[in-house]
Amino acid sequence: MDFLRPASWEEALAAKAEHPTAVPIAGGTDVMVEINFDHRRPEYLLDLNRVGELTDWEVGEDSVRLGASVPYTHIMEHLRGELPGLALASHTVASPQIRNRGGVGGNLGTASPAGDAHPALLAAGAEVEVESVRGSRRIPIDEFYTGVKRNALAADELIRAVHVKKADGPQQYSKVGTRNAMVIAVCAFGLALHPETRTVRTGIGSAAPTPVRAKAAEEFLNAALEEGGFWDNGKIITPSVAKQFADLCAASCNPIDDVRGTASYRRHAVGIMARRTLTWTWESYRGTAATTEGAA
């Protein structure tokens, strides 16, 4: 095994081009487990810890450019306002020690259906900025996950950053597990209200081979909210609409039975989380809508 230690982003891209089989290591919280248990013996480890810009973030007009290695702890502490869904999801990852090392770039690299960043990114809207010596491109988050633990990266590409849309409305993240800390999701659900575009977006974890959006449920809800004038009148969402939304979310899953839960439990739980997160975010939207009206 060789340990490659590029001191800059350009050096890292050059190393990855020269050794396409090299395994990048950022926080190491996925990679080191595999090496410790001899599940993986890469020829090259490509250490990204010395590439300082990967731990930086920039808050722009519409989105946050989040460096691939920004640890979850920093997302929770510094980006709760801009990225509330991702901050909530980050807080559910493992433990403080893991959150001090692990980040979204590693979560995307592993692309596990259970990764907690994914539902939040899908719901908020995001693009993954990847780069190689050949150039840079942005992959829409909906196209990033290509299979169980597979993603759209080419062999010579590295993840530079994720561009996540800044929240323009309330966001929630909900996760089912056996305890509060150190738990891989049985299933998870992210939901974001986007009042500017009058849309609702979702993200589901651990309930299909890849993280997915519940697109049919989103379309139904967007139409129902528009039709009922809900975005303007700020009324409570009709229970039948919430129920139909939850049912469609459950139907969009394609879960499996495994040690953490059965497929039917997962489908059921996704429906419950969908209804709850919709209720929570809508209550919060109505609250803020009322205050702005009152203030105007």
Binding site: T29, V33, P96, R101
Partner: peptide
């Protein structure tokens, strides 16, 4: 604070 078993 980090888990030293997961740092290369």
């Amino acid at each position: 604070p980090v888990c030293s078993c997961l740092v290369a």
